[in-house]
């Protein structure tokens, strides 16, 4: 399970872990490290590594836009002291944030299994 002998796999798993850390524990800091990893390895010979690096960086940027910019504009447009701003904001943030985390779980589970990132989990 956690015996990641191959350096490729270690890279892919790290990318996914950093993506999740950015969302859950160290926003910003984890992204900078992830981005460094991406810049260094973006031309990696393994398509598996490239797919996880690209997916995590892209989704981190989208998460930043959707979670920070959209939330901020909701407060600006709706007004800070308005009850419906908070109803919408909390619902929106919780749902979108949880969705990005679940994408990370999907990616991590595929990195751990040595698979290229894909939306498809099984033959369901």
């Amino acid at each position: 399970m956690l015996a990641l002998e191959k350096p490729e796999q270690r890279l892919a798993v790290w990318a996914e872990v950093l993506y999740l850390l950015n969302l859950l524990l160290l926003p910003g800091i984890a992204f900078i490290i992830l981005f460094g990893l991406f810049v260094k390895h973006r031309r990696h010979t393994s398509a598996f590594v490239r797919s996880h690096l690209k997916q995590t960086v892209m989704f981190s940027i989208w998460a930043g836009i959707l979670l920070l910019l959209v939330s901020l504009s909701m407060v600006m447009l709706g007004g800070f002291a308005q009850v419906y701003t908070w109803v919408m904001l909390i619902l929106y943030f919780t749902v979108v944030h949880a969705s990005f985390v679940l994408i990370g779980v999907l990616g991590l589970s595929q990195a751990l299994a040595g698979k290229i990132f894909s939306w498809k989990l099984s033959s369901l």
């Binding site: 399970m1 989990l121 033959s123």
Partner: peptide, 29 residues
């Protein structure tokens, strides 16, 4: 709970067989 999702997804990703009972897999995930 977080680990449970990683693990369930991971096991399905590493599956050795395609079980014919799809709803059971769906409920588990």
């Amino acid at each position: 709970f977080f680990m449970m999702t990683v693990y369930a997804f991971n096991m399905v990703n590493q599956r050795r067989r395609e079980h014919p009972n799809k709803p059971a897999v769906l409920w588990a995930l």
